[in-house]
Amino acid sequence: MSSRKRTRALASTTLGIVFLAVMLFPVYWMVNASFQDAGMAASSSFLPLNPSLAGYEKAITQQSGNLLTSIVVALGAVAVTLLIATPAAYAIAKFRLRGIAWFSFALLIAQMIPGIVIANALYVVYNDLGMLNSVPGLILADATHGIPFAILIIGAFMRALPMSIVEAARVDGAGHVRAFVSVVVPVSLNAIITAGLFAFLFAWSDFIFALTLTTSPDVKTVTLGIYDYLGGEVQSWSPVMATAVMASIPAIVLLVFAQRYIAAGALGGSVKA
């Protein structure tokens, strides 16, 4: 009986692995193709039997500047997102401000606005302000991906915080700001980290704002670098795939090392609506 149960469980695991393998085949194919010899675009083998780093060499020489831009922009977007979203989430969760429900509602709607609508209008504004092709401009725009999500995720967490810990600090003479910085933020760190990681991934993956708000090679993100490859007839896929692999590293690293935050964020998706 128990051995039969075990075989069934094992069969389930095997089939589960098969499903996962099918789903992740494109990711495997990306890694596989990135190691193929650059000259052999016409025939791709299923295993990188003769691994070559030529694709990476080419990708790094062509994309290292873009990767750096992407990192700076994504980190900047995280900073902007958290600085704006964390206090707002606290106020929405704990201060019964008159009319604040409207703002929460606006945040929900904001998440449904297609990025291209925002990008279009921002192009006009940035053009007037001379903010096209600027890293700060891109950072502020990319924060739109993260801010509504961050306010909702952090707010959901803070709503569950007992008010007594804040009151204790306030009785000791701390103002709202002191109580927020020294009590609320430390106990909410998990939610803040989750929001920060997603803000990073959103900004790192951004394509629409990079496409619309930059026109020069000086400020170019790696997503745009990949798109440039796809623009023409692709001669050799290994540098393209090598760039795609490098662009995917943050997501893979976070999934492996920050899994519980990612899981929290994925569930936060249901909190959203």
Partner: peptide, 22 residues
């Protein structure tokens, strides 16, 4: 297995798009 299944969702869209194009 379930958490690894999240990977396609987390990758930059344009990176996945490049692989699919290939």
């Amino acid at each position: 297995l379930r958490s690894m299944l999240l990977l396609p969702w987390l990758l930059p869209l344009i990176a996945s798009t490049a692989v699919w194009k290939w």
